[in-house]
């Protein structure tokens, strides 16, 4: 998937565009207000459409208050073995484990591939072999080989996270200005010093961008993995709820997946800001 490195470009913040009669920027307060109104209107439409005898049957889309009630209930009452908290923690545990493992292996691998020829000859072809296959396609193999326990899920999510970790670590080394390496050398730095202090440190923002993509990929893949092989977790809840046509629970699971995904993304972005405050923005 070329997504890995390319998405860093997508993530680049927009340049503020100069004013033009065509697309006049709104004041910040005004645009927040419009956003809030739009969201409220959407919920009201949802509510009206799902009123008893309304246009949409609850089997197709349940009313918002039903979803909200179910959400609150699930926070305290177990559903399929644990509360919503329990399922969320199960999901987060697998994701963070696989994501961290991906970083521990992916960063040195990417740096090695970009820095040493020999490593590249061995690792790169294998990596290219694995890369085009969507991580999900490994799930059946992982289940056959590793069973339906945590290990299989961690393995699949790990593969999903590994690709951006490696790609961005490679990119981090590749995008180093050779002049910086020259400058370090004329100041007396040794090869290991150049690698650690100049190459890795300067490339840190790119690696951190990879970390963010890896976390997003991991979360996406985990949801699917939990639908195929799990006994807990939000994806497991979603699929089981849909099997018994329990749309309230299904929407609660989907919403929780979305909120946690957003929270992870925001967390890692602020962590990156904190770790590499010098990064070009």
């Amino acid at each position: 998937m070329t997504v890995a490195v390319r998405s860093t470009r997508r993530a680049a913040p927009r340049k503020p565009s100069t004013q033009s009669m065509w697309r006049r920027e709104l004041a910040r307060g005004k645009s927040v207000l419009i956003g809030v109104i739009a969201a409220v209107v959407l919920v009201i439409i949802w509510y009206l459409l799902t009123l008893p005898g309304g246009l949409i049957q609850p089997l197709f889309l349940p009313p918002p208050q039903g979803v909200a009630t179910q959400f609150i209930t699930m926070l305290s009452e177990p559903y399929l073995g644990s509360t919503l908290w329990g399922h969320a923690i199960a999901s987060l545990g697998v994701v963070l484990e696989a994501w961290a493992l991906g970083g521990i292996i992916g960063i040195p691998l990417g740096i090695a591939v970009a820095w040493w020829k020999r490593a590249r000859w061995i690792v790169w072809p294998l990596f290219q072999l694995i890369r085009p296959v969507p991580p999900l396609a490994w799930i059946p193999l992982a289940i056959v080989w590793l069973g339906i326990g945590d290990v299989a899920r961690v393995a699949v999510v790990f593969v999903a996270a590994l690709v951006p970790w490696v790609m961005n670590s490679i990119e981090a080394v590749r995008s180093i200005d050779p002049l910086l390496v020259s400058a370090a050398r004329t100041l007396g730095a040794s090869e290991p010093q150049i690698l650690m202090r100049v190459v890795v440190r300067t490339g840190l923002p790119t690696i951190l961008a990879g970390a963010r993509i890896a976390l997003g990929n991991a979360w996406t893949t985990l949801v699917a993995a939990e639908m195929l092989a799990a006994t807990a977790g939000l994806g497991f809840v979603a699929l089981n709820a849909s099997r018994v046509l329990d749309l309230d629970t299904l929407l609660v699971a989907m919403g929780t997946i979305g909120i946690l995904g957003a929270a992870l993304s925001i967390l890692i972005s602020s962590a990156a800001q904190w770790i590499a405050p010098w990064a070009e923005d």
Partner: peptide, 16 residues
Amino acid sequence: GPKRSVVFQRFALFPS
């Protein structure tokens, strides 16, 4: 090495 240190046109400062 540092016996002959260099000042480059493009500064070459370590951004981090």
